[in-house]
């Protein structure tokens, strides 16, 4: 499948799983991002520290500031390792990360661990905003695993739609432990 085809399939599958998919140009991203920010629940945004394309993170931070949001992010410590301010993270109603790859077959985001990659920002806040490049769409998990060449990162999470449960009378309910809302911005699609 060509890129436009798998991208189309991704969008259909992700939407079916409950993800809000937004195709945006780089210029309109800040405005669209701001529109997805929560109106209540606090003004802290949890932001990953690493993995971003050059310049984009700074633009996101600037936009958050003009929307009245403070940023909390994994901080680099003296030994070179990253750590969250867990209280600030727990208080953030929204998390924002960069995600390089996502899978058409299942509509999944591929969230990988790494210093400053900020996986918890996609898990603790009620709203998860994820930014990806249009050319990052892969066919399926097999395609991604092939890229890892048999030596995977410490954690790979396929996140597909919001956190949900059917444990009470099989009634689907969103936002159990993780986000109840996931917005995926695909840039340049």
């Amino acid at each position: 499948m060509s890129n436009p085809e798998i991208l189309e399939r991704y969008i259909a599958m992700a939407r079916a799983a409950g993800t809000d998919v937004e195709c945006v140009s780089e210029t309109e991203l800040p405005v669209r991002l701001a529109a997805a920010l929560p109106a209540s629940g606090g003004n802290i945004a949890a932001l990953s520290a690493s993995g971003w394309p050059r310049g984009l993170r700074e633009r996101v931070v600037a936009r958050l500031a003009s929307s009245g949001f403070e940023v909390t992010a994994p901080r680099k410590e003296e030994g070179g390792g990253y750590s969250w301010d867990i209280d600030r993270l727990a208080a953030a109603p929204v998390g924002i990360v960069w995600c390089e790859h996502y899978l058409a077959d299942t509509g999944s985001l591929v969230l990988v661990s790494g210093p400053g990659m900020g996986g918890l920002a996609t898990l603790l806040p009620e709203i998860s905003l994820v930014l990806s490049p249009a050319q990052g769409c892969l066919g399926d998990l097999a395609d991604y695993l092939q890229k890892t060449g048999g030596s995977p990162p410490s954690r790979i999470t396929l996140a597909t739609g919001p956190s949900r449960t059917g444990d009470i009378e099989a009634t689907m309910t969103k936002g159990v432990h993780g986000p109840g809302k996931v917005v995926h911005f695909i840039i340049g699609a």
């Binding site: 799983a17 390792g81 750590s83 210093p115 995977p152 410490s154 790979i156 999470t157 597909t160 956190s163």
Partner: peptide
């Protein structure tokens, strides 16, 4: 199990947190 194409979260863990990582 649940008739899902995939569950919301599939986590693949290979060893503990690595050098510099902030979670795990």
């Amino acid at each position: 199990a649940t008739g899902q194409v995939i569950s919301s979260y599939v986590t693949m863990i290979t060893g503990p947190r690595r050098q510099g990582e902030e979670d795990g």
